[in-house]
Design a binder for these strands. Structure first.
Lengths: 317, 317
DNA sequence: GTGAAAGCGCTAACAC
DNA sequence: GTGTTAGCGCTTTCAC
């Protein structure tokens, strides 16, 4: 017992014993057994975090935000990757819960029925991040992707564009990209316009894919003056297709993406985009979750909505 | 006991009881307590994985490779991010070991003395990945970055280039980038050449940084016909700087990076690079680690060396 | 095929 | 300030 107390830095242990214990621990290379600690104390320092992908910089940055924010709290994040697959996600959630984490963070609002049940029944704070277009289980931190699409459509129409195309990918898997697209289209229709054409692939978004789909669209000869992409990677690929085709961006053709990734700043043309607050979402969800672990939160404290800022880049002339 | 056996799918339980137990578990929303399972059975299904960063696509892909490969094994990866900081890394390692994982994977060979001691004393297989230039604790899967630098220098000299510059970043933190640079320089010297100039920033590599450093170098008016970058992101940024300056790549100026990232394929010019086998490293290290968990491995089975293939892209004329 | 006993390595609660 | 007792939720072992 004295050793246990000394190692935890608990009060009421004599200086002499503290030193003795610490030295002995050092000597034998003692490493706490967290399994026993947690089982005994009925509490862990674990926070489960499930994201759909890590190759996508967006989630890498959310995780970085989470890592940073959690640093001083004594909690430890445990990451899981669902590959945009609800069944995989459910398995991961089940597995994480079996480690009795003190909080959970999952991406988006579209979990399986079973996943929602598991999370709701776990008796711990649960946060859903990135998206707010839907009903949350508990804590919800993110932005409206439908609105993001609408806002971009609105801004582009204001710039005088009228012949719109959409280029995206894997919309069946990436729900949030789909919501942006739908918001975009809805707003166009409100303005009396509609998409002239679109290209949607099943693969995941990437720069080469954006380039390929754009090249294809340009070659088809359809007359458009603006392309809205599912995200910045795709839009950057589009830029290179236009360069190869000798088309002036943004003068003759305006390209717009989503996320406001850092690498856009290095491109030859500053494309239009909307900055998603990725690190901030990570930071804030941890802040709220840690509070929720301490004591129950009022409904209004359990919801945080960000409004991504549109950046028209070189297109704002 | 019967319940425990039924839930684990163990043999020797009557059909009737299996069904009864499963139904009851479903009904009350039972979730295994892995803390108790692992404490009791003296074994976990955890594999600790420590990487320096996740914003860097390279590590995101290694982790993806690990995730894929581990899928069917019943093991579960637990990821930690060290931020290129040996002290943070040590804390993470210590923390992970306290959960009694059945194996550990860490990035690079440059752990702190204490970290090495912890890992070596944990009594579990330990794999160090990405780099092989140094002494490994146990399992080692990766490539020689010094050789990668040398090979690229060799290839570029063969193309007739002679006035070399180097542009890199955060070399004090990114040991492997430093090793490539040193290998590169050593090979140049072997060929009777040396770096005409170099630009090295403290920030982490990024496309905008590559662009800025390259623009600066171009403006300085130094005469070079080839730039070797710390990696592809930096090189791509360099490409945009040359485009802005109206310099023909690769004719007048050859740009070379490292990693062979997918997005290079979307760029206006296919830059020179060397493909690092990122997913493969993830896949293979899991294969070896899982074997090592089953039974001790011979020294030659504990080491796997990859030889990155040089791709000169449009520079190979 | 099922159950009883012991124990994994810790901590909570209480006595001294 | 220190030690004792009991127990966290499982699994292992052995008896029946």
């Amino acid at each position: 017992m004295t050793a246990s107390r000394a190692l935890r830095g608990a009060a009421d242990v004599s200086e002499a014993n503290i030193e003795k214990v610490l030295r002995a621990a050092e000597e034998i290379g003692y490493v706490t057994n967290h399994l026993a600690t947690s089982l005994s104390s009925q509490t862990t320092n674990l926070i489960g975090v499930v994201v759909p992908s890590m190759s996508n910089v967006v989630f890498a940055e959310v995780l970085a935000g989470i890592s940073d924010a959690i640093q001083q709290s004594g909690k430890q994040p445990v990451f899981g990757i669902s590959n945009y697959n609800a069944e995989v996600e459910q398995d991961i959630i089940r597995d994480m819960l079996s480690w009795r984490p003190s909080g959970m963070i999952v991406t988006g609002l579209e979990q399986s029925e079973q996943s929602r049940k598991l999370l709701a029944g776990a008796g711990i704070p649960v946060a859903q991040i990135m998206d707010i277009d839907g009903e949350a289980i508990d804590i919800n931190v993110g932005l409206s992707h439908a609105d993001a699409g609408r806002d971009m459509a609105c801004a582009l129409m204001k710039l005088g564009r009228s012949k719109f195309a959409y280029i995206g990918s894997a919309l069946n898997k990436d729900v949030r990209a789909r919501k942006r697209m739908e918001g975009f289209r809805a707003e166009l229709e409100k303005g009396g316009l509609s998409l002239v054409t679109s290209r949607i692939d099943d693969e995941f978004s990437s720069l080469p894919l954006g380039r390929a789909l754009t090249a294809e669209l340009l070659q088809s000869g359809v007359d458009v003056d603006c392309i809205y992409y599912s995200n910045d990677d795709m839009a950057a690929g589009g830029l290179f297709a236009t360069m190869a085709a000798g088309i002036q961006v943004p003068q003759r053709l305006l390209l717009a993406g989503f996320n406001g990734l850092e690498f856009l700043e290095g491109l030859p043309v500053r494309l239009a985009t909307a900055r998603s607050p990725r690190r901030q979402i990570g930071k804030e969800v941890i802040r709220i979750l840690l509070e929720a672990i301490k004591h129950p939160l009022a409904p209004e404290q359990r919801r945080l909505v960000f409004h991504p800022e549109i950046d028209l880049g070189d297109s704002s002339f």
